[in-house]
Simulated assay, not measured.
Amino acid sequence: MSSDVEELGEGHSPAAWTAVIVSLLGIAIGTVAFVLDIQWLVWGGAGLAVVGFILGWVLARAGFGVNGSRTQHKEH
């Protein structure tokens, strides 16, 4: 059975991976800082999480997103 539906991908791109990894690192740092009651580091972790999403958006716009001009297309 053939399908004409185009597969959009599941975020498997350098931009998506970078956004998720940097944001998770920020969330982890913020969580540990919250438990240790280090308020400035909690806000630093939150800021890093936001920077991660912005970095992912910038990389996607630069061609490193799904089906971007600078990514390698793999045949499944």
Rank of each mutant, 00 (worst) to 15 (best):
T31F: 15
I27N: 02
W43N: 04
L25N: 02
A16M: 12
S3W: 11
G63T: 09
E75S: 14
G63S: 11
V22F: 08
F53K: 04
H12Y: 10
A19D: 08
V32N: 05
L24P: 01
K74T: 13
I29R: 02
E7W: 15
G9L: 11
G52W: 01
G30L: 00
A60E: 12
A33E: 03
I27Y: 06
G47W: 00
M1Q: 07
M1F: 13
F53R: 06
G65A: 12
N67A: 14
V20F: 14
L25V: 10
W57G: 07
H73E: 15
L55F: 06
S13D: 05
T31R: 04
A60P: 07
H76G: 15
G56P: 08
S13Y: 08
G68W: 09
I21A: 10
V66W: 02
D37H: 10
L25G: 11
A28W: 11
A60W: 09
N67K: 14
S13L: 06
D4M: 06
A16K: 04
L8W: 09
R61T: 13
G68N: 06
S3M: 14
I38M: 06
N67I: 02
A16I: 05
A46F: 13
F34R: 06
A28C: 09
G30C: 01
I38Y: 01
G65Y: 08
Q72L: 12
W17Q: 03
I54D: 02
W57V: 09
V20A: 12
G45D: 03
V51L: 09
I38W: 01
G47N: 01
G68E: 11
E6L: 14
A46R: 00
G9K: 06
W17I: 05
L41F: 08
P14C: 05
S69L: 14
V42W: 00
H76W: 15
F34C: 09
V20C: 10
A15H: 05
P14R: 03
N67M: 13
V32S: 07
A46S: 06
D37T: 06
V51I: 07
W43D: 02
G47R: 00
I38T: 04
I21E: 06
F64G: 04
I21S: 08
S69A: 15
N67R: 13
G11T: 10
E6C: 10
W40K: 04
S23G: 10
V22C: 02
E6R: 11
I54A: 11
V58C: 07
V50I: 10
L55W: 04
A28K: 04
V42M: 07
H12S: 07
I21D: 01
I54S: 04
W17S: 04
E7C: 14
G68T: 10
A15G: 05
V66G: 09
A16N: 07
G44N: 01
H76M: 15
L36S: 13
R61V: 12
